[in-house]
């Protein structure tokens, strides 16, 4: 796949192995996939399919054993460490399943943390809008311990949006939430794509969550095995059953 403006992240023949010798594990076996701009992509698969590993490689959190990762036309392997971190800071947002926030900081401080790390001033108007959109206006001065799981995830999402990154990576963002909070977070992710032109890549095992996406990529044993465009929950579920999961 040639570097192309319609793709924000491109992975080419990514192989990732852990450990050595007899204990070695090949999490990714030569995956090539591209994530479209201004699109909501879901990555699905059973445990051990390598979907989290794929996310980490795409985000530069981990370096693949071989293959290349391109973010907005730049080869991540060519970027040395401190610069890579700064790139991540400015151009990527993260929402994890849990342990997303720094316990000692308030919600607002967590949201503006990437700015502080860069030594830059946040865009106050934009931050205010993001906070309003995620429905956190009256909770910004609270610490994570005083927030519900759903609220914590929304803070993480607000932090991801605050820097207006190229791409937002979400790893099982609704995994630890109840149905209602989960739907809120997914709805916000959808809005981010539709209203703000954000690109989102979400790893999930929940067929209902996958239905929010524009495209679903299916992984199994470290390889891409199928794709569905404009998925419905039923289509996704049917496809998963077909693979005998």
């Amino acid at each position: 796949m040639a570097p192309n403006d319609s793709y924000v992240v491109i992975l080419e023949r990514i192989v990732k192995s852990y450990g050595g010798g007899s204990a070695g594990v090949r999490a990714l076996q030569g995956i090539s996939v591209g994530f479209r701009r201004r699109a909501f992509t879901a990555v699905m698969g059973p445990s051990g399919s390598g979907k989290s590993t794929l996310l980490h490689c795409a985000a530069g959190l981990d370096r693949p054993t071989s293959g290349s990762v391109w973010l907005a036309g730049r080869d991540l392997a060519q970027i040395p460490e401190p610069e890579l971190t700064e790139l991540r800071r400015r151009q990527m947002g993260f929402v994890f399943q849990s342990f997303n926030l720094v316990e000692s900081l308030t919600a607002l401080e967590n949201i503006t943390l990437p700015f502080r790390l860069s030594g830059m001033r946040p865009d106050r108007a934009w931050v205010r809008e993001v906070v309003a959109r995620t429905g956190l206006t009256d909770r910004v001065r609270h610490r994570p311990a005083a927030l519900s799981g759903g609220q914590q995830q929304r803070v993480a999402l607000a932090r991801a949006l605050a820097t207006r990154p190229e791409i937002i990576f979400a790893d099982e963002p609704t995994g630890a939430l109840d149905l209602e909070s989960g739907r809120q977070v997914l709805g916000l992710l959808r809005e981010a794509v539709d209203d703000y032109g954000q690109s989102v890549v979400m790893v999930t095992h929940d067929t209902g969550a996958a239905a929010y996406a524009d495209q679903v990529v299916f992984l199994a044993d470290g390889r891409v095995v199928d794709e569905i465009v404009s998925p419905s929950a039923e289509a996704v579920a049917r496809r998963m059953l077909a693979f005998g999961w």
């Binding site: 460490e81 971190t85 700064e86 994890f96 342990f99 997303n100 720094v102 990437p114 790390l117 860069s118």
Partner: peptide
């Protein structure tokens, strides 16, 4: 470790 790793993920450099 968890908290420090999170900071790394968000964008704190090793030096920070």
């Amino acid at each position: 470790r968890r908290e420090l790793a999170l900071l790394r993920a968000i964008g704190a450099t090793g030096r920070q």
